[in-house]
């Protein structure tokens, strides 16, 4: 009975959290945007997007180079090393770009979002805003949500481009593959709508999921120093798991029918 009872309690708690966070998301998104609060959004674009650029560019470059090296050792056995460009581009654009970009974004930007909001709550700044008649959903939460929604797809595009040029550098300048066949094998197999646009759609879905989790975890964190730590950990763990699970579903829907 004790086990069943606690199981039921956990399930109920999860469903309650899902319901509350949905209402929370819609309330934050449906607040009327005002021109006066534009600078808040700009600030979040800087914090969430621009400050994540170095890690995204660095990681992208190295991921592209590793793909080039690993792909070469396998493909050269079949004499198909001219298909290296195609392999690098398809892997990145369809899978690795959105997934790795999302995981890095969860670690770099989402954890900071959670910690910041949880600290605002712990130091009772959210309550003071309410006392002043300012809705924290509008002033604190909404700009962070919108910035997250836009920044991750943008970062993923940059990640993909940097990684492909990293792969190009390794394959052509180091391993000695012909540059023309590198690009032409890529261009004849990567389709703009099926691959690039589907990759962007994936990253938009991930962006909504992880930003939502981060902001919600910060908002409901228990207002202690311990609570901030727990909330930040939960954000990184949940967003990573959600990205991987959503990726499976999206891949099954988008890419299983393709050659």
């Amino acid at each position: 009975m004790g086990f069943l009872g606690s199981l039921g309690r956990h399930i109920l708690k999860f469903i309650q959290a899902l319901g509350f966070s949905s209402v929370f998301l819609f309330q934050a998104l449906l607040t009327k945007p005002r021109l006066k609060s534009f600078h808040l959004l700009l600030k979040q674009f800087y914090v969430v997007g621009v400050l994540s650029l170095p890690i995204i560019i660095f990681a992208g470059f190295f991921v592209g180079m590793v793909l080039g090296l690993q792909g070469y050792t396998v493909l050269v056995k079949y004499g198909a090393e001219s298909a290296l460009g195609q392999m690098i581009a398809l892997t990145l654009v369809r899978e690795l770009g959105p997934v790795l970009g999302g995981l890095l974004f969860a670690g770099r930007a989402c954890s900071a979002l959670t910690a910041e909001i949880a600290l605002l709550k712990t130091t009772e700044q959210l309550d003071s805003l309410r006392l002043l008649g300012v809705d924290p959903l509008h002033r604190v939460i909404a700009p962070r949500l919108w910035a997250g929604f836009f920044c991750l797809p943008m970062l993923v595009l940059i990640f993909n481009a940097v990684a492909i040029y990293g792969g190009y550098w390794i394959s052509v300048d180091w391993l000695g593959i012909d540059g023309g066949s590198f690009w032409s094998s890529m261009q004849s197999s990567v389709d703009f709508r099926q691959d690039i646009i589907n990759g962007v759609i994936k990253s938009i879905v991930f962006a909504i999921a992880v930003t939502w989790i981060a902001v919600y975890q910060g908002y409901v964190a228990s207002p202690t120093s311990e609570g901030i730590g727990y909330a930040t950990t939960r954000t990184v763990v949940y967003s990573s798991l959600v990205i991987l699970a959503l990726d499976f579903i999206l891949t099954a829907v988008m890419f299983t029918g393709l050659k």
Binding site: H39, L42, K43, F45, Y46, G49, V50, L53, A89, V93, M154, L157, I158, N160, A161, V162, I164, Y165, W183, M186, Q187, S188, V190, D191, F192, D195, I196
Partner: peptide
């Protein structure tokens, strides 16, 4: 300064998107 950095970020994204569209997918 914030605007300059965010503007650069957007510019970089547009560059990456153009590279992906034309150089990678051969659009």
């Amino acid at each position: 300064a914030l605007e300059v950095f965010v503007g650069l970020f957007v510019l970089l994204t547009l560059l990456a998107f153009t590279a992906l569209a034309f150089q990678v997918s051969g659009l």
